[in-house]
């Protein structure tokens, strides 16, 4: 796993340098970019970290960068900085889901707290994303028939009903059911239901696998 990095995107070179100096002196690994485009081009998606971005930049602004990032496979907590937090820009940023919104002249500890929080969240989200991916990998091992059976099981149908629906023998249903529970490492239907919920799989959609990336 690569190092945790704070990415600073700002069109003002002087502020960029000062920010980078302070964060480095505070013990962070810092990378700076002059524009949103530069960041998107150079970004390593596996890298853990957070993004500190100037809200007002010519061309692609901070909010645009946030939405582009949110749609990517590896989102990253975004911290907005602005020269002056007027009502209009604050409302706009909050509406777009800004996590933190700081003025450039806010004191150091507020900024470092916000960065710390963002990194903690990034780590948590990253862990959740890994778990999710593993879970999806587990579900992906199921065969098409097993997925069909899973879908029916999650809807609370009996083996007999499933057999009738799928036009197969009840014993065959039992075999599939046992196999998928073994693959998913669960012993009870209750545990199966909980796992499916975690993976975001519900009854009717169960047949639309794979989930993993």
């Amino acid at each position: 796993m690569t190092e945790t990095t704070v990415h600073v995107v700002d069109d003002d070179p002087s502020f960029r340098t000062a920010m980078s100096r302070m964060l480095r002196a505070s013990g962070y690994v810092v990378k700076t970019y002059g524009s949103a485009g530069e960041f998107l081009a150079e970004r390593d998606s596996d890298e853990p970290g957070c993004l500190v971005v100037d809200l007002q930049m010519p061309g692609v602004g901070g909010l645009d960068l946030q939405s582009a990032l949110a749609q990517s496979r590896a989102p990253m907590p975004v911290l907005f900085l602005t020269g002056h937090a007027d009502t209009a820009s604050t409302v706009r940023a909050m509406r777009s889901g800004a996590e933190d919104f700081l003025e450039k002249t806010d004191p150091q500890d507020r900024l470092l707290d916000a960065i710390r929080r963002a990194l903690v969240r990034d780590a948590a989200e990253r862990r959740a994303r890994v778990a999710q991916r593993e879970l999806h990998g587990l579900f992906d091992t199921l065969t098409a028939r097993e997925r069909e059976v899973l879908g029916h099981v999650l809807q609370g149908r009996l083996n007999k009903q499933i057999a009738a629906d799928l036009g197969i023998h009840e014993r065959t249903v039992k075999v599939h059911r046992k196999s998928l529970m073994t693959k998913l490492k669960v012993r009870s239907v209750a545990a199966l239901t909980r796992l499916a919920q975690e993976a975001g799989v519900d009854g009717p959609a169960a047949a639309t696998f794979p989930l993993g990336q």
């Binding site: 003002d12 002087s14 502020f15 340098t17 000062a18 920010m19 100096r21 302070m22 480095r24 002196a25 505070s26 007002q56 900085l81 602005t82 020269g83 002056h84 007027d86 209009a88 820009s89 003025e103 450039k104 002249t105 004191p107 150091q108």
Partner: peptide, 25 residues
């Protein structure tokens, strides 16, 4: 007004960050 406050805060923010960095150094 808002834009101009931003324009002034830009260098002020840079000054603050630089001063903080210097203190840490």
């Amino acid at each position: 007004a808002a834009a101009l406050a931003h324009e002034i805060n830009q260098p002020l923010g840079a000054i603050l960050r630089n001063a903080e960095a210097a203190a840490l150094f």
